[in-house]
């Protein structure tokens, strides 16, 4: 396939146009400094949710420890960029976080992904807690429960945007590659996939490690944007928040994860004035949505440029046929 074709150019235009619109909104003050925090939170949540969707939606494994991997990324990037307070330090931190997270994910993934069932969920739940407790206890490196502050503010929103686009690009391309197709086959029927000669443990582990690595990127950007991180930011509830975005958008739909991150981010802003009632409304909304639309907003449908072109193409042929 050629690199320069209609669909790829379409995606490029879409990514640049979104960026320009956001840039315009920020520079005209339509997105104020307060809403810029919401914007960055949404972008980081896109990174986290798309990564988790790769694990849950495409390989069919539960992971309940996304916040743990995020914490590794955040602390690695935070500590390194405090030593080297420039972009080189931040990128070094992101790469360090990715490597460290991948190692931890491999250690957890290899033994548990050999098994069928919810074992990865249980193991990741435990690992995330162990990571958090380790961070609390490594007083001289991580400053314990009080957290790390004064991390240089380098990840301005355009950088976060670039990383979000890159994450989506990598994940979507992976699911369309040969290993990605093998991963989806495992999700559909593990035994059938195995009998077709697919090494199920290998592909489940690849998807899990890749997903965990994106969590590290999300965590690193979080640390750099907010300048302050505490172990309390990466509890079980944080993992659940990301899981909710994935399920709300539709398991196995990258478009769904992006839309859900945006919708829930905006919903959060609108629910802010309700104070303590906010979480009650949020919980009720969650239950009601799950009961009436258990497959999430988009199910496993995807928005694609080629689908869009196809749709327009069909409409115009119908019109032409009507004229005849």
């Amino acid at each position: 396939m050629k690199l320069v074709n209609k669909t790829n150019i379409g995606w490029l235009i879409l990514a640049i146009a979104t960026f320009l619109i956001l840039q315009l909104a920020v520079s005209t003050g339509l997105i104020s400094a307060y809403y810029e925090i919401t914007l960055v939170t949404i972008l980081i949540n896109v990174i986290l949710a798309v990564g988790l969707n790769l694990i849950i939606g495409f390989s069919g494994q539960f992971s309940l420890g996304h916040a743990g991997f995020m914490a590794i990324g955040a602390y690695t990037a935070g500590i390194i960029s405090k030593y080297f307070p420039h972009y080189g330090g931040l990128f070094l931190g992101i790469i360090g976080g990715i490597i460290l997270t991948s190692i931890v994910a491999l250690i957890v993934g290899v033994p548990t992904l050999r098994l069928k069932g919810d074992y990865l969920a249980i193991a990741t739940l435990g690992v995330a807690e162990i990571i958090r407790i380790t961070i609390v206890n490594m007083q001289n490196v991580t400053n314990g429960a009080a957290g790390l502050s004064g991390i240089p503010y380098l990840a301005k929103w355009p950088l976060v945007y670039v990383f979000a686009v890159l994450t989506v690009l990598i994940v979507v391309n992976y699911t369309r590659s040969s290993p990605g197709r093998a991963t989806i086959a495992i999700r559909e029927d593990e035994i059938a996939a195995e009998s077709m000669g697919i090494n199920t443990t290998k592909y489940k582990t690849i998807a899990f490690v890749l997903g965990a690595a994106t969590a590290a990127v999300g965590g690193a950007l979080h640390a750099s944007y907010f300048s302050v991180i505490r172990p309390g930011d990466f509890t079980f509830n944080k993992s659940i928040d990301i899981l909710i975005i994935v399920v709300f958008g539709g398991i196995g739909s990258v478009t769904g994860s992006i839309i859900a991150a945006i919708v829930l981010g905006i919903l959060n802003v609108f629910l802010q004035p309700f104070g303590s009632l906010r979480m009650i409304i949020y919980a009720l909304a969650l239950i009601v949505i799950m009961i009436f639309k258990p497959s999430g907003l988009l199910g496993n449908k995807e928005f694609t440029i080629s689908g869009l072109l196809h749709l327009f193409g069909r409409k115009s042929t119908i019109k032409e046929e009507g004229k005849k």
Binding site: I251, P294, S295
Partner: peptide
């Protein structure tokens, strides 16, 4: 799906 029930339980 089981994950939908899981999310409901979290809700």
């Amino acid at each position: 799906t089981r994950i939908a029930v899981l999310i409901t339980a979290i809700g």
